[in-house]
Design a protein around this nucleic acid. Sequence first.
DNA 1: GATAAGATGTTA
DNA 2: AACATCTTATCA
Length: 176
Amino acid sequence: MSILNREFYKKNTLDVAKNLLGCKIFRKINNEILSGTIVETEAYMQDDPACHAFNGYTQRSATLFKQAGIAYVYLIYGMYYCLNFVTEAEGTAGAVLIRALNMPNANGPGKLCRELKIDKSLNEADVTNKKSGLWVEKGITVPPENIVTTTRIGIKKAADYPWRFYIKDNKFVSKL
DNA sequence: GATAAGATGTTA
DNA sequence: AACATCTTATCA
């Protein structure tokens, strides 16, 4: 029962992406609580051609510049939602994309949002308390040797940046 | 107002 | 390997 506080997110995006591995996401819907361990993340930063905020401040990317510890949810390809957690200080763009959870049918950004019933109404939701129905708690600690660093998936720009992290030998990680 | 591209998932 | 499908950004 230790919810990750705002200080956890208000750090270097790459560090937050690694620290989030092994943490548990909780989603409360009506009286049901869904949860899953984060097994795969990707980092997106301000000086990153693939980041939505790279080309300046727009309506969609505005969330990335807000305070750390809130959710950034957007629709991709008109069919799938992606869940991010905003990082860095207010005014600096940065976010961590959650790519996979340690639960069935959640091995991909779009699939996990479908499983957790995440949609745009959760955009900018505060993840540091339970009121929003979406929060993260400290989970297992992943030793550095079990964190694998590779290039990101599904993007065309800056695809060679080694900013994707996942837990070694985890079968729920999207794509091998 | 119109157009092109996109941090994906499913199907063949 | 191709496609489904629509919001967002970027023009005019």
